[in-house]
Design a protein around this nucleic acid. Structure first.
Lengths: 153, 153
DNA sequence: CATTGTGTTCAATTTCAACTGAACGCAAAT
DNA sequence: ATTTGCGTTCAGTTGAAATTGAACACAATG
């Protein structure tokens, strides 16, 4: 890998750390994801800790989280006790799916608040509108997912 | 307002504090928004501070932020030196618009990373796919906005 | 002119999640 | 049986963001 590409790689990993931080994940989770997306192939637990310059404890916690969310997958190799991680094939779809679920959950909560109010309350109308808002978001995400699937094929 | 409705109102305000915290805003900003959405009409600066039980400094900072984002509007009345705030008519549209812009900005950044790589790098393909992902998201948000506008009319 | 009622500012405090690193448990290798 | 290499755990630390509250500036009021 040329020095030039190596620089881009580092910057991309940093970028991902910041980008996913905005979405509620920790910077380290974002950087792990960034590294694995950039490289494409699998990286060992130790490689991750060393290359990102973070503690093994952090890799353990954050890799586990990402595996649980389905954005990365753990691999194990015969005769090698290390854990390896790679980006999940369907990582983007997974992100959209969980995002959509969160949005729908919010819509449902807001709808519950609305339903608890008498029909003559103007607040009820506003909360219903807000629930509609979140449902519209969810629909938009579903569209994005469909569109993404089409591009892939 | 009955005690029952008052309870729902308080819980909704709390809910909004937590919900908007997830989206990168401060809890107090979320609670201001929640209060104004629930009540519908305008509330004075002091009323907000008192009802939410927070300092005037916090109201000042957070209300200014929400006004700047366009989700609430400031009103002033003849013969009354206080500032009043109410939920913006187009608050949801505004949220979707700014969300879409953020997503498009991210898509653009990722595309820049991809474009900086030689064509033979497999990383380039993956980053392009990621940029597509964000563009698909943006399109989904546009759909949500259109759908929301339709419901309103 | 002094006072009162505004919103703003900013330094200090508080809070909270991220992160570390040492201790640990476990399994494979020697 | 001991050592080595692995991932996990958790108590402690750190750092950043939210919040406070007192000082302030300003304008209206008395």
């Amino acid at each position: 890998m040329t020095a030039e590409i190596s620089t881009i790689r580092t910057e991309f990993i940093d970028f991902m750390g910041r980008a996913l931080e905005q979405q509620g994940l920790s910077p380290i989770a974002g950087r792990i994801l960034g590294l694995l997306i950039f490289d494409g192939d699998a990286r060992s637990f130790s490689e991750l800790a060393e290359e990102l310059g973070v503690s093994r404890g952090s890799i353990s916690a954050n890799a586990k989280l990402l595996v649980h969310k389905g954005t990365i997958v753990k691999e194990n190799r015969a005769g090698d006790r290390q854990d390896y991680f790679r980006i999940a094939e369907e990582s983007f779809e997974v992100m959209l799916t969980s995002l959509r679920e969160r949005v729908l959950q919010t819509a449902s909560s807001v709808q519950d608040f609305a339903d608890a109010l008498p029909g003559d309350q103007s607040a009820r109308r506003r909360l219903c509108g807000m629930a509609e808002f979140y449902r519209a978001m969810a629909e938009g995400i579903a569209l994005a997912k469909a569109r993404l699937a089409k591009i892939r094929c």
